[in-house]
Computed example of a mutant assay.
Amino acid sequence: MNRWFAVLSVFLGLVLYPTSASADELRPAYIEMTEQSPGQWSLLWKASTNSRLGQTGEIIIPENCEVEGDRQREYSGSNILTRLLLRCHGPVQGQTIGLKGLELSTTDALVRIAPMGSAMQTVRLTPDQPSATLTKPSVISNVAATYTIIGVEHILLGFDHLFFVLALVLLLKGGWLVAKTVTAFTVAHSITLVGTTLGWLSLPSQPVEAVIALSIIFLAIEVVKAKPDDRRLSERFPWIVAFLFGLLHGFGFAGALAEIGLPEGDVPLALLTFNLGVEIGQLAIVAVALAALYVIRKLRSNWLHPTKTATAYGIGIISTYWFVERMIA
């Protein structure tokens, strides 16, 4: 019993901190520069109100640009929006844009530059590279690479979606069965992600996020109560369960993508590559989890069941916290 609680305590210690205290810190910031008339640009900067970047960060504007008028700041939901008008002397290509304070943050920033009469450029800033030199973009490769990376990061840092996939791996036996079930989850969340992003589907975000937490609690309970001689609902119909819950998770992905924004004129490509990135991230989770279970089975087979159960308890406890938090928010 002591070993049981030791494993569970270590798991909660590793997972609970980044899922609660730093959740908003992981949300990407967003900068958009749009040329409204020759030399006249509007700039929008969006950052989470709870992130260090949103509170203390500063925009690094191109050197050939100057601010005209007062900057405007307003709150929109959980974001701080900063708006500027810029007068730029000459093209912004070859100039530097960035965020002061990003190097002290744990998030990234997505920058979109939309000049008149030429292709939009998408740039990704990171804590390691908080500024970038604007060049004439190769639109297809630029947008595809950026949104693929964002998709991978969202599934790996979006702990609710990660926990759902991990719970599927814990519940099901056999790599092929897990792969087919995760594929059903992918197909389902792709449907609602695309439908919501294109404006065909809509659900309020708060109840959706609460039900997503419930879906993880359901799977955690299934893992804990699983018995070799009594197959539970999700073991008998894993593809159906994953598909139905995947539809809900797709609304969650769409909400995250709405926070980031999509490049005008390249929405289909951005959607496709974001979804591809999510799938790459899911497969990485499945591969790592299956490898870990395989190692435990080979080295200490009697540890396998307690490890699965302790992990499921940890997932269930954290997801219950999320559910309560999202219901009262």
Rank of each mutant, 00 (worst) to 15 (best):
W176A: 14
W176T: 12
V224C: 14
W176G: 05
A145I: 04
V208S: 05
K136M: 10
E209Y: 07
A114H: 09
V224S: 06
T186E: 07
T183N: 09
G158H: 09
P204N: 12
A114I: 14
P137E: 10
Q129A: 14
T122D: 11
S105A: 15
Q121S: 15
L219K: 11
V194A: 15
T135A: 14
H161W: 09
A145F: 06
V139M: 10
L156H: 02
G117I: 09
Y147R: 02
L171Y: 00
V224F: 14
K180A: 08
A210K: 11
K136L: 13
A132Q: 01
A188R: 00
L198N: 05
K136R: 14
A210P: 10
T107L: 12
D128N: 08
Y147G: 08
T107W: 09
L203C: 03
I113Q: 04
T107C: 10
G199A: 08
T148C: 07
V223L: 10
S215I: 07
T146K: 02
I149M: 13
K173W: 02
G151E: 03
L166Y: 06
V208P: 03
E153G: 04
L198I: 04
I140R: 06
E209S: 04
V178A: 02
A144Q: 02
G101D: 07
V139R: 12
A210T: 15
V143S: 04
F164R: 13
L193I: 03
I140S: 08
L203S: 01
G174C: 08
V178C: 06
S138T: 12
S202Y: 13
L134Y: 10
M120H: 08
E209C: 05
P137A: 08
D128Q: 11
P115S: 02
V194G: 07
P207Y: 00
V182R: 12
R124I: 05
D160G: 02
V165R: 08
I212K: 04
K173V: 04
P130V: 09
K136H: 09
Y147K: 07
V143Y: 02
I217T: 06
Q129T: 10
V123N: 13
E222S: 08
H154Q: 11
G101P: 00
R124A: 07
L172W: 14
W176K: 15
L102N: 11
I221V: 14
V178D: 01
S202M: 06
L162W: 15
L214M: 06
K136E: 14
K180N: 11
E222K: 03
V152A: 12
I191S: 06
I155Y: 11
A114E: 14
I217P: 01
L157V: 06
A144M: 13
S138G: 04
A220L: 05
T183V: 10
P115M: 01
V152P: 03
A210F: 15
L171D: 01
K136I: 12
T196G: 12
N142W: 03
T106W: 05
T126M: 08
S141F: 08
H154G: 06
K100P: 03
L168M: 15
A114V: 10
T122Y: 07
S205N: 10
L110W: 01
A132N: 00
I113G: 04
A109F: 00
T181L: 05
Q129R: 14
G199P: 04
S215N: 07
A119K: 14
